[in-house]
Design a protein around this nucleic acid. Structure first.
Length: 713
DNA sequence: TGATCTAATAGTAGCATGTC
DNA sequence: GACATGCTACTATTAGATCA
């Protein structure tokens, strides 16, 4: 690569694009990548089953990162060699590895990897994906655990079939929160509506009739009435914070009358009877009978008697931006988010898993357990349309609803969802993929699995920075600001930095973490009581973490990465925000690190309507910033921002994908940020106070945007 | 006081696989 | 190819808050 770069003469002298002698600036093919990524984003777990190791938020399409690394390190054209085998040598790093996309795609290509994340759940998820596992031993042990726990607790998840009177497996228990009426003193169910199931995947609609206190099946209608007592089933007994007493008609705000934590009542069951199933259309629902209700008391009693021997976590829920909502509902300990039967089941399962002798198999089962907790708590709701349990993270927060869905603990293979057997199967699929990754190609409309011989995500783990050969992965749990790397050792950094106003990963992941760490007493990554730390970069009002902390943290990380990069090696990251100000921390960080932005590429990122995207029109396109040491960046594109945005739009239209106005705003903001970096680079003083650097960058962005608006007006 | 924004909550969509 | 049903993620609605 040649070296030539100088001060800008005008704000729009947008240069330099990189030398064309090789590298992803020229070899990246935005249209090709977008075609892959848009398909992958539709059902990500089908294209890259590795993501099913454990829930993580906001995963980028693996195809984007595979393409970026391919374009940088492989001289062959992207489109013709994307699905061929790779054995690239080199070391790449991801300082914000999150769900591990960079780690997985790099190991597949043969690269050694350094992955770092401050969140122990991220570390653990990626570790589990990469660490070799004996799948036969895993399957064998999982089957034994399931059988043992089923022998012990299976009765708690059976109910009498209303058709044949035989015992059948319960799929879901349906619970409703309740309180006492301040007027008549009777117990009031807080049903927001009375419909339990729609008639899409079941022949009739299923309602709870408060007067009969039974489930009723009725033909779909806009004015459904109870066939027994003619009760108007379209009523909404509880609207927002106000409920109507089903006994005396009193309307009152229920919040002050709720138990702390709220109490639940069983009002319905969905079950699966193997004897009758073939002769029945749709699903099987029933009103709980006396035996069903007695099981609840029996489970509570058994929990009281055995609780000390189980490993149930007693951690308090710390205050937080998301967790404060739980406090408002009266939940102060994580274990209050579970019914007694759930605690008994989870505690028993945990205890049994902790007895598994092989470390790796036990770790794998513990990870399955941690992930399946999402479907085993009282924050789960029932999807009345799909007729299944929704997980706690269906939205990125802790929404507390008035109805709860208590899932079967162990479950039935291929029936229902969110039970232990389903999560074991999911994990197995993920690990099979880790051993033998594939790409999905299309033969016309037909999907074809295309195995790639020689590639693997499973790679030996080491405890320090790899040399490149043999291929190794070093995963580090801690702040990337403190990651120790050799100078000029990395062939590239590929990452997806946090957004300032992003999902509160740590607060959400604590829900799983407090359980998982019970298995991991001997491991340093689980020594802290919470995944929250001052070293996390995401803004958090509760922890008094603002934009300044975010900027200085990001700057430290980029500086550290920059000094570890080989001369001319790229720092590549995806970013996406439609507020131009959100790019200022990045601009500061890149300039502090002594880098310039050689180009900004376009790639599909998260799907639309993500929580961190402020305001109007959502966007699915990411800007991919490619940054290098200015001495190794050369060439003058002469293109202005509008031209660059138009080129991006044209590349997406060729997919075909028509960018939204939100997309275009994001792409523009990305190019403005790049232009700002180039404009400020020569005069930038990294030693200036942070506030001054921040102001300088903010003003430069505003000036470039003003000029852009003037010229395009 | 009405317009507008935001947070909370309920509900819906799209694509997948397996079986007949 | 129809049908059943599983998985993950997104959208619509609206009460309540805020502001002109």
């Amino acid at each position: 690569m040649s070296s030539q770069s100088g001060p800008q003469t005008t704000l729009f002298d947008v240069q330099p694009d990189a030398d064309t002698a090789g590298g992803l600036e020229t070899r990246y093919d935005a249209t090709f990548v977008a075609r892959l990524a848009l398909r992958e984003k539709q059902v990500q777990q089908s294209y890259r089953p590795i993501i099913q190791i454990h829930k993580w938020f906001a995963r980028r399409p693996g195809s984007v990162f595979r393409s970026l690394m391919h374009a940088e390190f492989d001289g062959r054209p992207l489109a013709s060699s994307y699905t061929s085998a790779h054995d690239l040598a080199g070391i790449v790093a991801d300082p914000f590895m999150g769900g591990g996309t960079t780690v997985y795609e790099a190991t597949r290509l043969g690269l050694s990897v350094v992955g770092c994340d401050v969140n122990p759940m991220s570390f653990w998820t990626v570790r589990q994906a990469v660490a070799p596992l004996d799948l036969e031993a895993f399957e064998r042990e999982a089957a034994q655990v399931i059988q043992d726990v089923r022998n012990e607790l299976g009765d708690y998840y059976r109910t009498r079939c209303t058709e044949c009177a035989e015992l059948a497996d319960v799929k879901y228990f349906h619970l409703v929160k309740h309180c006492d009426c301040p007027s008549c003193g009777k117990q009031v169910d807080l049903h927001p509506g009375l419909r339990l199931a729609e008639s899409v995947r079941h022949p009739r609609e299923v309602y709870h009739c408060p007067r009969c206190n039974t489930l009723k099946e009725v033909t779909a209608s806009k004015t459904p009435h109870c066939p027994q007592c003619d009760y108007d089933l379209a009523q909404r007994p509880t609207v927002r914070s106000v409920t109507t007493c089903q006994h005396c008609g009193n309307k009152f705000r229920f919040a002050e009358h709720l138990g702390k934590p709220p109490r639940h009542r069983l009002f319905g069951i969905e079950y699966h009877c193997t004897h009758c199933y073939e002769n029945i259309r749709g699903r099987q629902f029933k009103t709980p009978d006396a035996d069903d209700l007695a099981l609840i008391d029996r489970a509570a009693e058994q929990l009281r008697a055995t609780r000390d021997q189980l490993l149930i976590p007693e951690d308090a829920i710390p205050a937080g931006d998301e967790t404060s909502r739980l406090h408002r509902w009266g939940y102060h300990k994580w274990n209050e988010l579970f019914s007694d039967r759930q605690l008994l089941g989870l505690g028993t399962l945990m205890k049994r898993i902790s007895e598994v002798p092989s470390d790796e198999v036990r770790y794998a089962l513990a990870t399955v357990f941690s992930d399946f907790l999402r479907y085993q708590n009282l924050l789960c709701r029932y999807d009345t349309y799909a007729l299944k349990c929704q997980d706690i993270f269906a939205v990125h927060g802790f929404p507390v609803a008035l109805l709860a869905c208590e899932n079967s603990l162990l479950g039935i293979p291929k029936v229902g969802s969110g039970s232990f057997v389903h999560f074991v199967a999911k994990y197995l699929k993920a690990k099979q993929y880790a051993k033998h990754p594939y790409e999905i190609v299309y033969d016309g409309k037909r999907k074809v699995i295309h195995p790639i011989a020689g590639e693997s995500i499973e790679t030996p783990l080491v405890e320090s920075e790899p040399e490149g050969r043999p291929q190794e992965v070093w995963l580090s749990n801690g702040p990337s600001q403190k990651l120790m790397l050799r100078a000029e050792s990395l062939d590239g950094v590929f990452t997806d930095p946090p957004y300032y106003d992003n999902v509160q990963y740590a607060e959400l992941m604590d829900f799983c973490y407090v359980w998982l760490r019970k298995f991991m007493a001997a491991r340093a990554e689980f020594s802290q009581e919470t995944t929250r730390t001052d070293d996390e970069l995401t803004g958090n009002a509760t922890l008094l973490r603002g934009l300044q902390e975010f900027t200085s943290g990001l700057s430290e990380v980029f500086c550290r990465m920059s000094s570890a990069l080989k001369p001319g090696a790229p720092l590549v990251f995806t970013y996406h925000h439609n507020d131009p100000k959100a790019y200022v921390p990045l601009i500061v960080a890149i300039l502090d690190a002594g880098l310039t932005c050689t180009t900004v590429l376009v790639a599909p990122g998260e799907m639309s309507a993500s929580l961190h995207i402020a305001g109007t029109k959502s966007s699915i396109l990411d800007s991919v910033f490619v940054c290098r040491n200015p001495s190794y960046a050369s060439g003058v594109s002469g293109a202005d921002i509008s031209t660059l945005v138009n080129a991006d739009v044209a590349a997406m239209q060729a997919v075909p994908y028509e960018p939204t106005s939100g997309d275009i705003a994001c792409l523009t903001a990305g190019h403005v940020a790049a232009a700002t970096i180039r404009h400020l680079r020569v005069t930038w003083v990294a030693g200036d106070p942070l506030e001054q650097r921040f102001t300088t960058a903010t003003k430069a962005v505003a000036a470039i945007r003003d000029e852009l608006e003037r010229t395009t007006a």
